[in-house]
Nucleic acid binder design. Structure first.
Lengths: 192, 192, 192, 192
DNA sequence: AATGAATGAGGTTTCATTCAT
DNA sequence: TATGAATGAAACCTCATTCAT
């Protein structure tokens, strides 16, 4: 009967917000951003359409938040050590760990890859995609520089492309794609 | 006084059909399938909306035709030799040639990659994507089998993922992605 | 090589005109006026859409001509004797003959009945429907007057309704509707 | 401050649904199904086009609901006694009552008759038309069987045709059609 | 007389978003 | 905080009609 405390309210808000984002993430991944309607989301989350707009300004803003959130999770879980300098052993761990995260956040990466191909549509998201992609590239660049590769820039972009290619194929056909064999292959190529 | 000859009409139809497909391909690639409207296409092609439906049954059917057409071009230009058995030298040519086609049909491959990520939405297209993907994989599989790789299936999927990853990154950033260096890197990895 | 004579041309025009009307009649009857397109008609008649407009001003005008034509056929074949005065024997013939025409011009009557119910839509047609209906009613009226029925007007409208009801039910289910038994029943009711 | 109660919403929905159905019924009856547009309906009902689709899946579905609703009203009001067996007196009442309903639900019967003539177009509706027509015929059949008519099946179809003919003519020209005189005539024919 | 590519008005339908409660 | 009825712009698509040939 008594009004909720401020703390309780904050908790409610946060839970609801997460519920909406999780639900949207799944639907976007499964059916695509455009084919998912606000009604779909509200129904699956068992809330009203109006409430969704209490938490997010627009459908596009919701997508944006999902991407930002996903990227933050990624970098949070993926904080190497302070300097971002990787030994071969750390690089090995770094790559294997990225495969683990790929599997654990399947829906997120599915959206991530599909958005990568249509940056012009969602320019605001693009900014975030690139922003969070940079340190990832930077780590590779540093690694190849320190290991005296001839063309570190090209090497960094090559391995980023390789990892994304694997990520994409895994997402297209998770049941059959040989993720572990691919990991070993990468270790071999880079002597990790 | 007399109606157009059958030949004239056939030519008109073919030209217009190509115009519509080309225009749509560009817009789909630039803005995505869902964000491109029939009005956009008609305006850019300088025709009426109605005329588009004189040539294609629906927006989805138009996309379908574009995909089929693109895939047929690809396989037509890409016919190795009859048996599909590749020597190392041919493999080298095969890969370099695929990079050439990637550059020449930029828009097509952009759509191709974005559709790969949302197959469930456009099931009819999916059938064609997979159908034309198969021989491509088959060639790799055969190559690795004949060259005594330990796990030819995994190797085939790995290189397919690698090439698609490169294709995707090139499409995201064609100005900066090091396509030639990547090609050399692949030659090195596979001793081509 | 020589140009067609005026007579030949007139014959061609008349044949073509009839072809279009017959084809339209069938399609209108089968699928309804609104659901039948000019393209449908042109295709089935194996002519171009443009040619149809060489013979008829509009789709509605085409319908109008069909109705007028049908009604004229009806009255032509149905000319009693000059005065329109019917003996009981002639009345008997009149009714049985109307059933014959119902069967012989099935498609026409199907359209006729469906238009009866939507007069406001096609006001021009309505005028013709009523115009041709009148003498039909007049004959009945005269008959009942001369045979000393108490309320000849009501009787005339009753039998007209009865015949139309039978016509409608026959058209809905021609295979099973008992047309002959109905005819006998009418003879009995009116002692014909 | 607080959202509407479930009861309030239910009432709103029911009222709006009825409003849409009533409005559509009138327009369909007046101008025909195909000539009535969703815009027409929305305008007359003073709602947005979108709202209509909040209540009905499609234009055809709306028609369907109108037909079903009308038929249900009909059978509800028209429940003779449990067994469906009619005495002569009940038959007399049955027929006179059907004339009352004809007058009270003029618009509905106008649509009903126009649809009877084009069943192939609206197959889903057809199912309902026939389903609700059956018991109506069954009652007649039973009546003629029990009263030892020679050909009860033909008699049932004859009287059904007669009643529909009267219904149709009344609908075409309600101001002048002699409904009462027709009723008396039917009593006479069947000695009711 | 004949063709069919082309038009454009207008139809049905969808859906992100708002707002009274 | 929460609801869902309501909106309206805009999407896809249809089709009677025109017109250059």
């Amino acid at each position: 009967m008594s009004p909720k405390t401020e703390k309780q309210n904050k908790e409610i808000r946060e839970n609801k917000r997460n519920l909406i984002m999780m639900t949207s993430l799944e639907l976007f991944a499964e059916n695509g951003y455009h084919s998912t309607t606000i009604s779909n989301i509200a129904k699956k989350a068992a809330i009203s359409k109006g409430l969704l707009y209490n938490y997010f300004d627009s459908k596009e803003s919701l997508l944006q938040q999902i991407i930002i959130n996903g990227m933050e999770n990624f970098t949070k879980l993926f904080d190497i050590d302070g300097d971002g300098v990787l030994t071969k052993k750390e690089m090995r761990y770094f790559i294997s760990q990225s495969f683990v995260l790929l599997q654990e956040n399947f829906s997120f990466w599915k959206i991530y890859f599909s958005l990568l191909l249509q940056p012009s549509v969602l320019t605001v998201v693009e900014k975030y995609l690139l922003k969070y992609l940079e340190p990832y590239i930077a780590v590779f660049l540093d690694f190849f520089q320190r290991n005296n590769y001839k063309n570190p820039v090209a090497e960094a972009r090559f391995i980023a492309a390789l990892l994304d290619g694997i990520g994409m194929h895994y997402i297209i056909d998770p049941a059959n794609f040989p993720l572990n064999a691919s990991l070993e292959k990468i270790y071999t190529i880079y002597s990790l």
